[in-house]
Design a protein around this nucleic acid. Sequence first.
DNA 1: GACCTACTTGACACTAAATATCAATAGAAT
DNA 2: ATTCTATTGATATTTAGTGTCAAGTAGGTC
Lengths: 136, 136
Amino acid sequence: MTDSTERLEDTGYRLTAPRRAVLDAIASINRPFTIEELSEGLPNIGRATVFRTVKLLQELDIVCRVPLEDGSVRYERSRSGRHHHHLICSVCGSVTEFSDPSLDAAIEQNATSASFELESHSAELYGRCDSCRTTS
Amino acid sequence: MTDSTERLEDTGYRLTAPRRAVLDAIASINRPFTIEELSEGLPNIGRATVFRTVKLLQELDIVCRVPLEDGSVRYERSRSGRHHHHLICSVCGSVTEFSDPSLDAAIEQNATSASFELESHSAELYGRCDSCRTTS
DNA sequence: GACCTACTTGACACTAAATATCAATAGAAT
DNA sequence: ATTCTATTGATATTTAGTGTCAAGTAGGTC
Ligand SMILES: [Zn+2]
Ligand SMILES: [Zn+2]
Ligand SMILES: [Zn+2]
Ligand SMILES: [Zn+2]
C-alpha cells in the first residue's frame, strides 16, 4: 500500500483521499473482486471514482484484470507487480499468479513465425486448484 | 456453411430459418464482428436470437470469441474449428488463428508444477500484423 | 399431407459493466 | 493564502448480454 501510494506520486498522479480509500479497500480484500463489490465497501466514494481508480491502478500494474472463463471479469491486487499469467480455479475462484520465461518465449516464437510484431499478450489457465482438487 | 449446418443437425439442434440466416451472415463477413453489427445486417431476425445463435455456434466451435486488449469482445468464424490461439492486430483489427503444441505444452507444464488440474486455457497475442507493420 | 410436441423465436423488459458530462471540490506548488 | 488544474460525485447514458413467455415452426409419426 505504501509502495502503491509512492507509485502513484512518482507517476504524477495526485494522492487523494478517495484513492487512498480505494487502495486500502483493495489491500484488505484477499480475493478477486468485482468493482461492484469494491464499491459496496466504499459507500462514501462515488462509483465512477472507484472505476476510474481501478483503471488507473491497472495501468500502474498494482491491480490486474482477471478474465473468467464465462466472460465476466474480476480484479486482483498483483502480487508481483510484473508481467505474469493466472491460474484461475473454477471451484473456489482463487487466482494464482505465475510467470514463465519459456512460456513467453513460445509466444514470442509464434509471433515471429507469423511476422507479427508482438506488443503484449495474455494467457489464462482455467481448472481446479490443488486444494479444490484434493478436497472433492 | 454446409459443414456448419451438418454440425448443427448432428448435435440435435434444429436447422431453422433464423439459424441459417445467421450462419449465412457470418459466412459473408470476412472480419471479426460484434453481435450488434451482425444483428444490424439481419433486421428480420430478433436480437436475442442472434445472441443465442452465436453462443450456440461458439459451443460447436464454428465461431470463436476474440477478447480484445481493451476488454471489448469480437467474434469470428473459426477457420480450423479446433483449439487455437489468436494474433490480433491493433491497427487493422485482423485476427489470425494459430496453434502450437509446444505452447500448449508449456501451459500444461505450468499447471502441473502448481498441482493445478487444467481444464482449459486461453492465449491471445496483441500487436501489429505483417502488412500493418510493413505499411506504416 | 396432417398432426403433434418439444424446441425455438421475437418482442420486451431487465441486468451488469462501464463511460460521458460537468459543476463543484480539493491536492500541491508557489 | 492563493491559484491552478486534476479530480470527484451525481447522474445520465451506453454497451453487452440475459430472462420471460406467448406464439411459431422443425421434424418425426401416422
Ligand atoms: Zn494477475
Ligand atoms: Zn507472458
Ligand atoms: Zn479463433
Ligand atoms: Zn492452447
